[in-house]
């Protein structure tokens, strides 16, 4: 489903980072492991279509990402990708429900109320549906972020350091939940992290070494 070959990325005026070749099959989970500066966030962004100007080949769902125009890439992302970031950034001006509705709205698809109820129930935050996101706890916010990422049943869920700020118990809960949700939605989970604690959960690992 994802095929990376001869991938090199260079930020403006900085030394290029080259990445190992790898393939991720449909429904397979994968860890992108590496310390800070090893380029794992860069790789995650390239796989997710947030960065375009790479050299080499990244074929996702049969599509070479660099060949898509900016707006086609936006649409591609909106349809097939779900992102979870370390900060679980939610739109504070909106309620929990509206944060979830934002995803299909921005991707230009229909808003499915049933799907929202289903996901909120699944993640146990049903009671916070109309709450403001500033009024919910950190753990609940993370669940809302996960809900938002899987709202549109993406083929790939990309998570950037989802557990690094959490204690051991929360870390285990979150990675378990992510894997469950990914399996339920038949999605591949790709996690970029330096968190050694989650190594044991996902077998497939791409090890990134810091640039020299």
């Amino acid at each position: 489903m994802i095929e990376v070959k001869g991938l090199v990325y260079a930020y403006n005026g900085q030394k290029a980072i080259s990445f190992p070749d790898f393939t991720i099959n449909s429904g397979e989970h994968c860890l992108l492991l590496g310390s800070s500066g090893s380029g794992k966030t860069t790789l995650l962004h390239i796989l997710g279509g947030l960065l375009r100007n790479y050299r080499g080949s990244v074929i996702t769902l049969g599509q070479e990402l660099s060949q898509l125009s900016e707006s086609a890439l936006d649409a591609f992302r909106g349809k097939h990708m779900g992102f979870i970031f370390q900060k679980n950034h939610l739109i504070t001006a909106l309620s929990v429900e509206d944060n979830l509705k934002l995803a299909p709205y921005l991707a230009g698809t229909n808003i499915d109320e049933k799907r929202i109820s289903e996901i909120l129930e699944r993640l146990g935050i049903d009671s916070k549906r109309t709450a403001k996101v500033t009024e919910i706890s950190q753990g609940q916010a993370q669940r809302v972020a996960i809900a938002r990422a899987v709202m549109h049943k993406p083929a790939i869920i990309l998570a950037d350091e989802p557990t690094s700020a959490l204690d051991d118990t929360s870390c285990e809960q979150v990675i378990q939940l992510l894997m469950e949700v990914a399996r339920e939605n038949k999605a591949s989970l790709i996690v970029a992290t330096h968190d050694q604690r989650i190594k044991s959960y996902i077998n497939k690992q791409v090890i990134l070494t810091p640039k020299l």
């Binding site: 707006s71 992302r77 992102f83 970031f85 950034h89 739109i91 995803a103 921005l106 991707a107």
Partner: peptide, 16 residues
């Protein structure tokens, strides 16, 4: 800025 970037990651185009 972060809100906008998140929205982009969710598929919003620049023009939107």
């Amino acid at each position: 800025r972060y809100d906008l970037a998140i929205m982009r990651s969710m598929g919003a185009s620049r023009l939107k």
